[in-house]
Design a binder for these strands. Structure first.
Lengths: 353, 353
DNA sequence: ATTGACTGATAATGCGTATCACCATCATGA
DNA sequence: TCATGATGGTGATACGCATTATCAGTCAAT
C-alpha cells in the first residue's frame, strides 16, 4: 500500500556521462571548466554536456569534491566557555558577526563547536582525548578563560588556528588583538588635556592579558605626563563595582577624574556620583577602557571602542591565509586600533591644584 | 635550511590499522563502536585500537564519512537570507539561540552555511551547482524569503531537514511554527472583552504564511464575535507604517481599537495617535500580533510573544529524531502556542455605540 | 611511408570511511 | 574423524569526484 515515491537519487556525473555519451572524466572537466594544453574539449561537446547536466538538475556533491580535493572549506569556531548564558552571548556576538562575514566573503562555512561542553559544564578541546576541532580545516578560538595547555598542544599537533585576543603562551601563535595600551594612553591624554592631574584608576581585579595591556598603557601614560596616582588606584570586581565608600575616599584623595577598565564599572560609578550629588562632567570626569553595551541610556561615556567585528574578520582572514598557502606560514600577530570616543562624561578640571 | 616541520597529514584509519596490526575495517568498527552478532571484536583489541587512535590524535574525517553514508553529528543551519544586515540578525537571533541550545543538549555541532551567498547577495541552496548542505546530517532551514522550489527539491532528494515557519509547499514537510491564528483570536477576545466593537485591522501588505495565519485567526474571531469591520481593514507596509491620514480616517469610521500585524507598525501608530492628542489606552486601544524588540521604551504593548527560542529547539529536536530513527519518519508539523501579553496599550471602550 | 604534432578524448586510480560478505581457526560433540 | 558452531576478524567494494597518464585518430611535413 505504499506509494514508495522513488527516493530519487541525486544525479551524478556518471549519469550525465551515460546520457551524453562521454566519459565521467569529460563531465568532470566540463563542469569545472578546466582547460589546459593537455586537455581540450571542443565547445560543442561542452555545450552538450552542460545541457544534459542542466536537464538532470545536476549539482556537484561537495562532499565528494572535498574528499578528492583535500579541504572541506570549513572554519571551526570554538569558544572556551559555553555560548549560552545570555551575557556570554552579548560578549561573543560581535566577534561572531565578524567571523561570519569573513567566512561568507571567503566562501567558507562555519562550524560551531557547541557539543564540546562536558557533562560538568566545563569545556576542553581535548575532552575524552579526542579533538573534534579536526573536523574543520582550521579554527578560530575565542573566550575569556582560555586553556593555555590546549592551545600549545593544538599548535604542536600542527593544527591551524587563529586566536582572538592575545595570549601569553610559550612560543609563537597566530592571534588578533586590539591595541588596548595605546587606546588607554589616548584616554589619559584626553583627561590630562582637560587639565586633570589626579586621576583615579579602577583596574580589573582578576588578571588577564587585556587588563595587563591596559595597565601597561596606563603606566606609560602616567610617567609620560608625570602623574601622581598615589592612593588613587583601586582593584574592582566587575560584578560588584566600587562601593560608595571607596568612591568617597578617592574623591577625598583629590581625584578629579576616574578611569575604569570595565564600562559597567564606569556606569556604576556614574550612578554613585549622581547619588552623591557630584556633577559629571562638571565636577568630575569619568572614562572607561572598553565600550558600553549599545542600549545603555544616558550620556555617552568617554571611552574607546574595541573593534570586535574587525577582530573576528581578521582572525578568519589570517586563518584562511594559512590554510590556502602552499608553504608553511609563520604564526603572526595582528593588533588593531581602538577608536577613541570623547563622549560626554569628561570635561575640564575646575579644581585648581 | 628549512626545518620542514613535516606538514603532517591528518592520521587516517589505515595509519591506525598499520600501527595496531589490524585491518582498516576493524579500526572503523571500533571507532564507530559497532557491535552485532556477525561482527565481534574482543575488548582487548578494541582497547588497543582506541589507544593507538588516541596516540595519533585521530579524528574521523567528516567528509569521507559523509561520502560513505555515515553520520557526523552535525546539524546544518541554513538561512534563506544572509544573516548579515543587522536587522536580519535581530530577527534570527532568538531562533539561533534555541537551535544552539538544543544542538548542545543533544551532542551535535552546528554547521552554519554562510558560504551559500552569491555575489549578488542572493541565496540559493543550489547556487552555482553545489549543494553544500549534504555536509551536515540534516538541516534546519529558516528565513522569510523561503525558496519553495529548493525545499521541494531537497525533500525529493531524501535530505533530512526541518523548517522554522510553516510553508505552503506541495506535499508534507517537517516544520515548526507558532500558533498565530489562536493568538490573534486571543487578542481580539481581549479587546472585545474590553467592550470594543469596531476594531481596525492593519494587515501586512506583502503576503506570507504567518500573515495568512493571522488573517485567518482574525476572520474566525470576527465572525465568532459578530464584529463588523467594514471600512476598518488596511494593508500596511512594514517599512512605511500607516499614514496620519489613514489613521484619522479609521478613527472617523468609528474605530476604538487597532490591531496591527507588525509591532513596528503598532509602535508607529502609537506615535501618530500621540501626535493627534488621542489618549492610549484612554480613548483608543492598540495591539500588535507579534512582539516588539526588547529595548523599546514606553508602555508595554498589548501583543503576544512568538516563542522563537522554543521554535528553534523544537526544530532541532524533530530533526534529530528523524536522523536517529531507524525507519523512515513521516514529516510532522509542530505548532507552538504564543503567550498573550495584556500590556498597557489597551483599555475599556469608553465610547458607547 | 614514416615521423611528429596535435586533437579529443578515456581508463585507471586515489581520496578516507563504512559495510557486506566471507574466511580461517579452534573447541566441541557425535 | 568429521560436522558444527562460535570466535575474531579480513578483503573487496561503494560512495562521487578530480587527476594523471595514456591512447586512438588525423593531418602535415618529411
Amino acid at each position: 500500500m505504499k506509494d514508495a515515491p522513488a527516493p530519487r537519487r541525486r544525479p551524478r556525473q556518471s549519469d550525465i556521462a551515460k546520457l551524453a555519451g562521454v566519459s565521467q572524466t569529460t563531465v568532470s572537466i566540463v563542469i569545472n571548466g578546466r582547460e589546459s594544453d593537455t586537455i581540450r574539449i571542443p565547445p560543442e561537446t561542452r555545450q552538450h554536456v552542460l545541457e544534459v547536466a542542466r536537464s538532470l538538475g545536476y549539482v556537484v556533491d561537495p562532499v565528494a569534491r572535498s574528499l578528492a580535493g583535500g579541504m572541506n572549506r570549513l572554519i571551526g569556531v570554538y569558544t572556551f566557555e559555553s555560548l549560552f548564558p545570555m551575557d556570554h552571548h552579548d560578549f561573543y556576538y560581535p566577534f561572531l558577526v565578524g567571523i561570519e562575514a569573513a567566512a561568507e566573503e571567503l566562501g567558507y562555512d562555519m562550524l560551531m563547536f557547541t557539543s564540546a561542553t562536558g557533562s560538568d559544564g566545563g569545556r576542553s578541546i581535548y575532552r575524552d582525548g579526542v579533538n573534534r576541532l579536526g573536523l574543520a580545516d582550521g579554527c578560530v578560538l575565542l573566550g575569556k578563560e582560555t586553556n593555555r595547555d590546549d592551545i600549545v598542544r593544538l599548535r604542536d599537533e600542527g593544527f591551524n588556528f587563529a586566536l582572538i585576543g592575545r595570549r601569553d603562551v610559550p612560543g609563537p601563535i597566530t592571534y588578533v588583538t586590539a591595541d588596548y595600551a595605546t587606546a588607554t594612553g589616548e584616554v589619559v591624554n584626553h583627561l590630562v588635556g582637560l587639565g586633570h592631574k589626579r586621576i583615579a584608576y579602577l583596574t580589573a581585579a582578576d588578571p588577564s592579558e587585556p587588563s595587563a595591556d591596559r595597565d601597561a598603557g596606563f603606566q606609560a601614560a602616567r610617567s609620560r605626563h608625570g602623574l601622581d596616582t598615589g592612593g588613587l588606584v583601586l582593584s574592582v570586581r566587575k560584578e560588584e563595582g566600587p562601593s560608595a565608600e571607596e568612591v568617597r575616599r578617592l574623591l577625598k584623595a583629590g581625584a578629579t577624574a576616574f578611569i575604569a577598565h570595565e564600562s559597567v564599572v564606569a556606569l556604576r560609578l556614574l550612578d554613585l556620583l549622581g547619588g552623591m550629588g557630584v556633577d559629571v562632567p562638571g565636577a568630575c570626569s569619568v572614562a572607561a577602557l572598553s565600550d558600553p553595551p549599545d542600549d545603555v541610556p544616558g550620556p555617552e561615556l568617554t571611552c574607546f571602542r574595541i573593534p570586535r567585528r574587525e577582530m573576528g574578520m581578521r582572525a578568519v582572514e589570517l586563518l584562511v591565509q594559512q590554510l590556502e598557502s602552499e608553504e608553511e606560514v609563520e604564526p603572526q600577530a595582528v593588533v588593531l586600533p581602538c577608536a577613541f570616543v570623547a563622549g560626554q562624561t569628561s570635561g575640564p578640571n575646575r579644581k585648581e591644584s
